[in-house]
Each structure stands twice: as structure tokens, then as C-alpha cells.
Amino acid sequence: MFEQVMFWLFGAGAVVTAGMVVAPPFNRNPVHAALALIASFFCMAGLYMLLLAHLLAVLQILVYAGAIMVLFLFVIMLLNLGDHELGKQSSSVGQMIGLVAMAFVTSKLVVTLATSADSLPHGADPAAPEALVRDGFGTVATVGDAMFRHYLVPFELTAILLLIAVIGAVVLAKRNL
């Protein structure tokens, strides 16, 4: 009961706030969209928590709401669009199509979720998620152990990926020096 209530709370929160990012309901201030995105990240962290992915839930807040969000805010500050550039909010054919598509995806999602209890492993009790995972699942120690014992190559490749990000950022920003 508890996790069902929390799931619908976080899930609805994530979807609604994500919608507020794409189509801010009150005005077209990009900072408001960024704030809605933070709320969406927190709801996602709540969903990870319900999935017992403890480390992932913390990292979602630490990295996404903390660091990735900074990048979005810096882009907003770099562009610094005023009301003039943003223009008036208008309804158009494209928005109507988007609305229909969103309604379709949402209904599909609801149907899938409503019937997803059937897809659980045989004999599993949907009301006892802890029975589906091993002891210590999702904790820092378990994730770290798996990362260094079984996924060492992907871990080292992450370093290369981050190096590429550093070089790319420097090249893009310092091209005219």
C-alpha cells in the first residue's frame, strides 16, 4: 500500500513537472522550466528509492539536480532570452499534434502499468519487492563491488568519455583564442 501510494505520487509528479518543463503553463520564463525540471529530478529520485536503487537515488539528486541543472541554468544565462525573443505563447497545429501524441503515450503507459503485475517473475508477490532483490541490493557497497569486479572495462571507458567531454568543452569554448 505504502509503495503504491508513493509510486503514484512520484510518478504523477515526475510526469506533470516534466510537462511543465516542455510547456510552462503560466509564462515562458526558462528559469521556471528549469525549476520544474529540478522537481522532476526529485520525483525520479523518489522512484529509484522505491525500486531500492539507493545509490542511484542519491546520485540522481547529486548529479542531475546538482550538476546537470547548473549546465541548464548556464545555458539559460548565456542566451538570456527576454520576452521579446521568446515571443507570445500561441496555440498552433504543432501543439495540438503534440497534445494528441502525449495523450496517446500517456494512455499507453497507464495501460502497460495497470497490466504489468502479470510480467513479474513466477510466484513473485508484487506487494513484497524486497523478495525480488538480493540482500544489500542498490547500496553503495554492492554497486561498487559489481562495478570493479564485473564492469571494470566500462568503468575505465567512462574515464575516456569524461576526457572527451573535457576536451570537447575546451575546444568549443576556446576555438577563437
Binding site: L59, A67, L71, F74, L78, L79, N80, V140, L162, A169
Partner: peptide, 25 residues
């Protein structure tokens, strides 16, 4: 408009923030 230098600082912070994320486990 803010200088792109601030963005540079932010993106470098992000990279080393992720490094700490991997150091922790």
C-alpha cells in the same frame, strides 16, 4: 548575456563531480 567562461567552469565542475561519483563506491 553572461560570458561563456562561466559555462566552461560549470562543465569542468560537472566532469570532476562525476569523477567523485565513481570514487565513492
Amino acid at each position: 548575456r553572461f560570458s561563456v567562461k562561466f559555462y566552461m567552469t560549470a562543465i569542468l565542475f560537472l566532469v570532476f563531480d562525476l569523477e567523485v561519483v565513481f570514487l565513492y563506491p
